[in-house]
Design a protein around this nucleic acid. Structure first.
Lengths: 228, 228
DNA sequence: GCAAAAGTGTTGGCCCTACACCCATGC
DNA sequence: GCATGGGTGTAGGGCCAACACTTTTGC
């Protein structure tokens, strides 16, 4: 291997948002350059020479979509030669979670270049981004079962049913309401507030809950492990 | 970001081997170039321009240690600026598992440049390789609980006690012999042969077992999930 | 009053853990 | 015969899944 290396390093991010109306959704951008010009793709781009990988993700998200996220985790690195038709590019992928306020704003603006897509209605994508989303979704599905990452997708205060619907949307299966609540409450890191849900339409309004992160860390240190 | 990117892409591998005598061990090389000349480090090196990441790992392992492995999985990508004192280098790390025959040969040769180290007796290492080994060990610990990767570290036929000791070495805790056997046998992918263990020293010789991978795949398709 | 969503308990079965004695072999 | 490691079963408890009716609200 005496020839000098000529490989580019990029980051790409699968950003998930959730509301009970829209379901689990992914943030995509419309490319304005070749290749795949005008095709949908994951936000991302080349890493700066003196920039950490996480910083690169946050910067690209800011530049391309205007959002900043509150949970970010490395997913996988894709490096097969030929995955970018022009250069050799290795992409280090991340997945991120945003709270509904961020999600809603951008779902409304509906700018031509950035949009949220329900996880079940992803359009054809540039490069191998389709398989990156599948990997991210798989990771989220398993992660949510043993770490309380779901709360990163909800408002600070939320009715219990939101949490339940979130789990159903992410895992794509039904969950028994009573058993689920017993399980979550038993852990002891959820706080019930006295506030009631603001309703839209009929139905009995529920109490709002809050995730107590410090309590969770404490419990975790004591060896309690979260598992749905 | 108009300046052109100047980042190198490397792969590094944490290769695990196991025997009940030596315990869980990691393959290291002694560096013959700066930086960290004569220091111990993980095998690895730069990725070729037209080479897949997995191929690069296999090639480096062959070049630096002479071994080829039978299980390889991507671990994590490390990219903090400054982790290599000279250039910006992003390392995509893998962990691999080898069977005891490979392990034993190299444990004997004891060449100056390549050696196996018990997981609890790793010397100081170059770069951030210490933390890479910790990450790999953590991954192995959790992986072995929900996928039958342990068999990749054993001979094709092995006495049951080997499997049990392997789990104890990897997880670094005691395991109840009877409960463990019940659990494993219940899955139905382990075949008991009529052959007996060849003894070294006293003790009742045990039957040899074999992992039936096809059976495992079948069972997995039927939705059975392995969990220790 | 009716439609919509929230709140709530019990039971049966399964699984998991804890635990100890006898057997086959080498020396 | 003794030391070493292999082989095996049961009982109790905890946890989990299955399951339906009542309450509060908007309209």
């Amino acid at each position: 291997m005496t020839t000098s290396q000529d490989i580019k390093v990029a980051v790409d991010a699968v950003v998930f948002g959730y509301t009970s109306k829209e379901g689990l959704s992914v943030l995509l951008i419309k490319r304005d350059i070749q290749p795949f010009k005008n095709g949908w793709a994951l936000p991302g781009g080349l890493v700066g020479n003196q920039e950490s990988l996480e910083d690169a993700v946050q910067r690209e998200l800011k530049e391309e979509t205007g959002i900043s996220i509150n949970y970010l985790e490395q997913l996988y690195s894709f490096g097969k030669p030929g995955r970018d038709p022009r250069n050799r590019v290795i992409s280090i992928t991340y997945y991120g979670l945003v709270k509904p306020d961020v999600f809603e704003i951008h779902a409304d603006t509906d700018a031509a270049e950035v949009a949220w897509f329900n996880i079940k209605k992803i359009p054809p994508l540039a490069f191998d981004h389709q398989s990156i989303i599948i990997a991210a979704h798989d990771r989220l599905k398993s992660k949510i079962l043993y770490q309380p990452v779901g709360f990163e997708l909800l408002e600070e205060r939320f009715p219990f049913s939101e949490l339940e619907k979130l789990y159903m949307a992410v895992l794509d299966r039904d969950i028994d309401r009573r058993n689920f609540k017993k399980k979550i409450v038993k852990f002891g890191f959820l706080e019930e507030t006295t506030e009631k849900q603001v309703l839209e339409g009929a139905g009995r309004p529920g109490n709002l809950f809050r995730f107590n992160q410090e309590k969770y860390f404490q419990l975790q240190k004591q060896g309690i492990n979260f598992e749905i």
